[in-house]
């Protein structure tokens, strides 16, 4: 489902060159739930951004959902991201001026789905994360766990093949973190969604199928 071959990512300024990813080779199968661990600044998020086509590698090949996306123009890349990928972030990234349902509808907005269908799909997604009764609330009226569940609903509303989660439990206490993790596991099991999750939490990582370890931009396990 995701194939990274010889991925290098180097950030260059006038005076300094920083290697964020160094010869990364990863192959993630469909339906796999993979966690990525490593110390802060080791390149985990950069790796997730490369998988999510939010960032381009300096060299190497990225194949996502059997598509080699390097030749895609920006419009095609945006459409591909919308159709194939779902994102979950540590800081939720909910738009504070939009209600819960409007936040969840966002990916469908860029897919030109009509309003009625958008609403139906968003309610369905919110129901699957147990927040059907919060559709009219605004993010500032929700707890951290609820916010992350809204973010998950937003990530799955378009039924993407791949979910990319960047420390989804990082801002939550253990109870809420476990709730979120349970939802992700359930999505993986019931919908066979491929999930790649960056985490600092060993316990969360143990619940996934496979653990990749990154250290100083290189894959060590």
């Amino acid at each position: 489902m995701i194939q990274l071959e010889n991925i290098h990512k180097v950030y260059r300024t006038k005076t300094i060159e920083t290697t964020a990813l160094n010869n990364i080779n990863i192959h993630i199968k469909k339906g796999e739930f993979v966690s990525i661990m490593g110390p802060s600044g080791c390149g985990k998020s950069t790796l997730l951004n490369v998988m999510g086509l939010l960032d381009e590698p300096t060299s190497g090949k990225v194949i996502v959902a059997d598509q080699e996306v390097a030749n895609y123009n920006s419009k095609a890349t945006a459409a591909f991201r919308n159709q194939t990928l779902g994102f979950i972030f540590q800081s939720f990234h909910l738009i504070p001026d939009l209600s819960v349902i409007d936040n969840v509808e966002l990916p469908l907005l860029y897919r030109k789905v009509n309003a009625k269908q958008r609403k139906a799909l968003a309610i369905q997604a919110l129901e699957s994360v147990g927040l059907k009764n919060r559709t009219g609330h605004f993010p500032n009226q929700l707890s951290g766990g609820q916010k992350q569940r809204v973010a998950i609903a937003r990530a799955i509303v378009g039924q993407p093949d791949i979910l990319l989660a960047d420390e989804p439990t990082g801002n939550l206490d253990s109870v809420m973190g476990n709730e979120v993790m349970d939802i992700l596991l359930q999505l993986n099991q019931t919908l066979n969604t491929t999930i790649v999750m960056v985490t600092h939490d060993e316990n969360m990582a143990k619940k996934t199928h496979r653990l990749l370890r990154i250290y100083d931009g290189s894959q060590v396990a």
Partner: peptide, 16 residues
């Protein structure tokens, strides 16, 4: 900025 990044991640093109 965060909203812009999010919208791009969710499939918005630069023109959007």
């Amino acid at each position: 900025k965060g909203e812009i990044g999010l919208r791009r991640a969710l499939g918005a093109h630069t023109t959007d």
